[in-house]
Design a protein around this nucleic acid. Sequence first.
DNA 1: CTGAAAGCGCTAACAC
DNA 2: GTGTTAGCGCTTTCAG
Lengths: 352, 352
Amino acid sequence: MATQKDVAERAGVSFITVSRVINGLDNVKPETRNRVEAAIKELNYHPNRQAQALNHGLTHTIAFVTPRMYDLPLYSNFFVMSLLSGVELKGRELGWDILLTTDYDLEGSFDFLRVWHQRKVDGLVFVGFQRFPMEQKGAIEERGIPCVSISDRIESPAISWVDTDNRAAARDAVARLFSMGHRSFAFIGIDADRDYNPNIIEREKAAAEALAERGLAQRRLISESSTPSTGIAAAQAYVAMERRPTAIISGNDSIAFHFIGESARHGLLCPRDYSIVGFDAEPAGRLSTPTFASYEQPLVDMGKTAIGLLVERIGGEAWERKTIEFPMRFVEGGSLGPAPADSHFLSASPKP
Amino acid sequence: MATQKDVAERAGVSFITVSRVINGLDNVKPETRNRVEAAIKELNYHPNRQAQALNHGLTHTIAFVTPRMYDLPLYSNFFVMSLLSGVELKGRELGWDILLTTDYDLEGSFDFLRVWHQRKVDGLVFVGFQRFPMEQKGAIEERGIPCVSISDRIESPAISWVDTDNRAAARDAVARLFSMGHRSFAFIGIDADRDYNPNIIEREKAAAEALAERGLAQRRLISESSTPSTGIAAAQAYVAMERRPTAIISGNDSIAFHFIGESARHGLLCPRDYSIVGFDAEPAGRLSTPTFASYEQPLVDMGKTAIGLLVERIGGEAWERKTIEFPMRFVEGGSLGPAPADSHFLSASPKP
DNA sequence: CTGAAAGCGCTAACAC
DNA sequence: GTGTTAGCGCTTTCAG
């Protein structure tokens, strides 16, 4: 590995001149600069970031912190991957590398600030911040650790966040289904005790509100059992219902996938027997029959924005907290149809 | 940020003793050690990795290098994410962090060794190695850069690889379909000029071989047009065929998804009109109707193995190149059925 | 068992 | 314009 010293020798200057050249300082004679640059090329010299960081303190690396990905449902893959892509892409553009910090121990022992303490990164992007152990969160404000949260609206004045307008989307879903004649609604949520997903929580609340404004109540499809899939459990509950709702709002697309599949196995078909709308607009929803109506979050853009804020924060003297809300976009799909005739409200035992 | 010096002062020793304690050297009196450890706790001291690396040269970080993820089809997400999960998980276990190096410029200007030259990482895990610009590859052997390839069987004596037995799986697919009565086969591949996927290439070759052994030929479903989706293009070609094959082997599950969807739109149903088998066993294949027959790669394990090899390589004096082939596992699915009656061979214009 | 000195590769202050 | 001197936080000799 070539060092500044090697380059300096070859160019016949002192190593400090090399430092000046690579840092683009202007007090170097053009001719000297050229000689140095030639030597850099010849020796394939790259500045040692570790050594640089030791001086001015910047590693030019950012941590992407999120609960473990590998054992999460498909949804999380798409969701997390899209965010990560945005973070990575914009990061590269700005000259920052991304370090993964994904190990999350459910027992709460995850030391997610380790990489910061070790000075491996200059800041952190969080996805699913609320899920992380409380003790460490205090340190962020105390020590002024630069970080940004995605999809979690953190109260702390030290933390900017980026999120989508889940409420507006959920309200739109209700309005849309209502205008198609639906009067009996259910929401497929998650068990808040066993899982945490701020998006789904917001969607459920807003949908309930919008229904209340129309004088309707929202039923909740969720099983307490530890069924591996929320969607399947919800479908089983649905099939067993007395007067089945005709309009289903699913916490997200992944849950809807499972719901539709399991319901079909019991003879209940979409959109014949019910309509369903999800969130996140997963690509798979474009391939299925019927296609899925959904609301799309600009995930890649959210990732990009998050890292933009973070880099600003890290470099900035006059930093200011920002909270950014993106709109969601409705994506058409065949899973939405008119409310079926009254018979469907009745608990006729569905054919298997 | 507390430094060794701070800890030393508090513990009433010299900073060198602190260094010994955090490095677990044994020449420290137990009592002194305790004092130092207490001080470390109190000050929440973490060793500065940058400074450590500057000395012994190890960053304890590894680069995960792969073509851009965000604009690739769903398949890549699942595939890459699973590998990445394995890498991340095992890396953490061994005390290594993962740096993403995912930006891949199709024009070939991607400087994928940058992070190594900058000494941000001690080694690299490659996915899709063959796609990277040739010029830089020479440097790997020359400079002895530690790296491991996943899913690409690199010839270089400097590069270990981890892969699956795609050939055996493809042969098994042929045997399976043959034993169900199928005698007319097609493979959905990719256009090698526009895309590169070593898995799919191997699968196609091996399937053709297995068919040849049975005196059968393999047709190829692939469009030259720049249709966004290989699967959709293949389905369109399929629908237009004179004597349609009844057994389809798809390069991977993602392609099969699109194929089935588009074929259905033209009135050709699976498994009534044809059987199809894919590779990778994507989770979505468990949710669809019919479910997908597929071959599963142990992706997480492959990722784990890769990083294991790499860490061995980095630390090892007596390093030895290893090439590891994992088996694939057949996953049952409803997309496989008996060969349909002869009529299906004919080019009856399918009902739309 | 503990400490002092040197140096990893680089940058920031100050000379010349 | 260019070089010299310190020092970032740590580890690695070598002394005591």
